[in-house]
Design a protein around this nucleic acid. Structure first.
Length: 801
DNA sequence: ACCTGGAGCGC
DNA sequence: GTTGAGCAAGGCGCTCCAGGT
């Protein structure tokens, strides 16, 4: 036991306010003591339950109705250390349950009853049951959930879908509050307002959150978007493939009624729900969600449930609140947007004589109140950020050194003692650096984070296995917490919004980078070819890696001499590098991992790392890149690329390229109806049409929409007369609509392959000027020639199956 | 030839 | 004593596309 409650009272079962197994009332939180220190704490295991619903759409009312509900429960999850799959298998206790009902009300297929009985007896407990109404289904579901007494509810998009549907349907079916409120740990007698006015169409509303009081909610959709920024799509299907290497079967809501025709297909539906619940739970473990969010929560002192919801700004807010409070500061109140509005309109009344120009007042308000101005104008940057050096473009085949300042902004806060307490508030302009030597709260806090992180990393090296993983999670969380601080200073919504401080930090960053460049170029006589915010790349001109490393070491030594806290480090050495534009480059990177030198291609910002290019473009881009980075002479590279292009073009024309490779993916930043220029956006058009066809899921704000640019067979014109957005089709439309839509090969050649390849090759000619004149291969890569290679030849009609 | 909104990156 | 409204939201710099003027 780890918790001690010294004085408490109990109530009779009928008077209890919760569904908990034990319920006590205390007079004050002071009677509760934690028995062990955080260091020695052995966290009790948690009960984690994944939920998945299968629903059909009620066309008339445009709502989802539940057909089947599955739960999968992991009874002894560790919350403090990662649990890799083998560990889970070894020590896990799993149980599952599904309840189903026939939406048509026409009974169940022949033999179904026996099938269910067999399954239950095989598992020697009730794992499957069927009901005759949605209300009965819900009752049964809540009862099973109650028995599990879960600490954490997991699900993919559970906060945006499953939870809402469960409670909406409970309300519609008049499920008793004594049943539906079992979804949480608190007994409730009335349904709260489920459709809150907050969160722009995603996440759980406050009403929903209040219903699950006492349990944590882990939405693997939200979590994966937060933790895996670069993943193309966070749909359950795609994550299962990329993270777990598992294929997921998708069942469209429109097909569900058909599945009730036979026992076999109905069982497939049920298994699909159980597998989906399992996948979501697997993703949670795979991403190490619980241990990471627990660490983040413990460091910042906010609520775990909030950390699970994202709430980065709030984490930062709580951390600062605790710190300032412990130093006996009284903090200013937090003003809501509404309060800010009231305040500014009062000011307007107070000093606004009737004849004053209204525009002037508005401008005044915009400046004083909020850099994001009103709601209709898009907010521009409020202050200057990082410095990006003009790249010296080209292909480098001698060693390039990559140096960067570790945690630049947190270090600047320490180096220059930047804090609310050290810098006076001023009316305008960037404030000056403080002269005070007494460290402010913010720098001390940064130092604290850095110190703990160092000690955690040291301990980590000595440990192995689970302890190692736990400490790694903790040091990662400490880094995140430190890096979060700067962003929140510059966020106008933040309680600790301090634009002058953010501006000052960014200014120092720019000056530091520029000073470093000057030092390297003027005093060390080395050439800086690029740099972004906290990094510089130096062309060593050397073929010998040891010599290159020595040069790097010298630079590091010279730069670090100048600073107390700031530290520049070598982040890697590029053997060969293609520098295309600001924020766009690729290289063969050499890195020391476990004392061994490894080599890998690093790509930054180039088209291939962006989800808004088709797989086709990316594959060809990567192919060209590999030829460029590993290729021999310029001529060989050019010829190889040219041949590759011709080959691909032929394959496309012959219809030998899989349709999946043509899929382009773009994210909706808002609900599709909210776009003012939906006409020009292919993904918005596709989303609107799919929604009209009754596909509700996957076409909301923040979802990614896949599409293919097509032309209509037998349409008036085969090509570009219609806008690009009108010719975009969802992959399912292309597959199902009876070969009505054909991939527009010409579009892909001209708009997907040509731009990608030509950008990659743009710098090749420049690297060997002498070959431009005579050699034929270089000419092959001249834009006009490249275009020729891409151009249409004989007209061919391709079919896709 | 310019400008704009939107998206998605880098840091 | 209960109900209801409202709550939130990291930053800037830089291509690149598509459409409009």
């Amino acid at each position: 036991s780890w918790l001690k409650i010294s004085i408490f009272s109990t109530r009779s079962p009928s008077q209890r306010v919760s569904w908990c197994k034990v319920e006590v009332t205390v007079e004050s939180p002071k009677v509760i003591t934690v028995l062990v220190s955080e260091e020695k704490m052995v966290h009790p295991p948690a009960v984690v339950t994944a939920i998945n619903l299968k629903t059909i759409v009620n066309e008339k009312q445009n709502i989802s109705e539940i057909v089947s509900a599955s739960v999968l429960c992991f009874h002894n999850a560790k919350i403090d250390v990662p649990m890799p799959a083998p560990e889970r298998k070894r020590s896990g206790i799993l149980s599952h349950f599904t309840v189903v009902r026939n939406p048509g009300g026409t009974g169940y297929p022949i033999g179904w009853k026996k099938e269910v009985a067999d399954r239950n007896s095989k598992n020697s407990c009730s794992v499957l049951s069927f009901e005759n109404s949605e209300r009965a289904l819900l009752n049964r579901f809540f009862l099973e959930l109650y028995k599990l007494d879960s600490d954490v509810l997991v699900g993919h998009n559970i906060s945006g879908f499953d939870l809402d549907v469960l409670l909406q349907r409970s309300q519609a079916c008049k499920v008793l509050s004594s049943m539906w409120s079992k979804i949480g740990r608190l007994k409730r007698s009335f349904m709260p307002k489920l459709k809150g006015n907050t969160n722009f169409g995603f996440g759980a509303t406050p009403g929903l959150m209040s219903c699950i009081a006492g349990r944590l909610l882990c939405d693997t959709d939200l979590c994966s978007r937060d933790l895996l920024k670069k993943v193309i799509s966070c749909s359950l299907t795609d994550l299962s493939k990329t993270l777990l290497n598992r294929d997921r079967k998708e069942i469209s809501p429109n097909d569900i009624p058909k599945l009730f025709q036979s026992s076999k297909t109905l069982m497939e539906l049920i298994e699909c729900g159980e597998i989906d619940a399992w996948l979501s739970m697997e993703i949670m473990f795979h991403l190490n969600v619980l241990p990471l969010t627990l660490q983040l929560t413990n460091i910042s002192g906010n609520l775990w449930g909030k950390t699970l919801q994202g709430a980065r700004a709030q984490r930062n807010e709580y951390y600062l609140l605790h710190t300032f409070h412990s130093k006996k500061y009284i903090l200013p109140d937090k003003f809501s947007q509404r309060m800010k509005d009231i305040k500014s309109s009062k000011r307007r009344i107070n000093h606004g004589p009737e004849d004053q120009n209204v525009d002037e007042l508005d401008a005044d308000l915009a400046l004083e109140n909020d850099p994001s101005k009103g709601s209709k104008t898009k907010k521009g940057p409020a202050y200057a950020g990082g410095l990006v050096l003009e790249p010296k473009k080209g292909l480098y085949d001698k060693y390039v050194l990559l140096l960067d300042f570790s945690s630049l902004y947190p270090s600047i806060i320490q180096e220059y003692n930047i804090c609310f307490t050290t810098i006076p508030r001023s009316e305008d302009g960037v404030p000056r650096l403080p002269s005070s030597q007494t460290p402010g709260i913010l720098p001390k806090l940064m130092e604290h984070l850095v110190t703990i992180r160092k000690s955690v990393k040291l301990k980590m090296e000595k440990e192995s296995g689970l302890k190692h993983l736990e400490l790694d999670t903790r040091q990662e969380a400490l880094k995140r917490t430190a890096n979060n601080m700067y962003g929140c200073l510059g966020s106008s919504h933040s309680r600790f919004y301090a634009m002058p401080l953010a501006e000052l930090i960014a200014l120092q960053g720019r000056e530091i980078l520029q000073r470093t460049v000057d030092l390297v170029q003027n005093h060390l006589n080395l050439e800086v070819i690029y740099g972004d915010t906290d990094s510089i790349m130096i062309q060593s001109g050397l073929d010998d890696i040891e010599e290159a490393r020595a040069v790097g070491a010298k630079v590091i030594q010279e730069v670090n001499k100048k600073y107390r806290c700031l530290k520049i480090e070598c982040d890697g050495i590029y053997k060969r590098m293609l520098l295309l534009r600001k924020k766009k480059y690729a290289a063969v990177k050499l890195e020391f991992k476990d004392g061994k030198l490894c080599e890998e291609i690093e790509r930054k910002g180039v088209d291939m790392v962006r989800r808004d290019w088709s797989l086709l473009s990316k594959e060809i881009g990567d192919l060209c890149l590999a030829k460029i980075l590993y290729g021999g002479s310029c001529e060989d590279v050019v010829r190889a690329i040219h041949n590759e292009l011709i080959k691909i073009k032929e394959e496309m024309r012959r219809g030998q390229v899989a349709i999946e490779k043509y899929v382009i993916t773009k994210a909706l930043t808002k609900p599709p109806e909210a776009y003012t220029d939906s006409k020009s956006q292919p993904h918005v058009q596709v989303a609107l049409r799919m929604r009209q066809r009754g596909y509700r899921e996957g076409f909301n704000a923040k979802n990614t929409v896949p599409y293919i640019i097509c032309y209509e067979q037998g349409g008036a014109s085969s090509g570009s007369s219609a806008g690009i957005a009108d010719r975009a089709r969802h992959p399912d439309e292309v597959k199902s609509d009876d070969s009505r839509w054909l991939v527009d090969i010409d579009y892909y050649l001209a708009h997907q392959i040509y731009p990608v390849v030509s950008r990659l090759c743009a710098e090749i000619q420049g690297t060997s000027p002498e070959s431009i004149e005579a050699d034929q291969p270089v000419i092959l890569l001249h834009p006009s020639c490249l275009l020729q290679a891409m151009k249409k030849d004989t007209k061919t009609v391709s079919r896709w199956h």
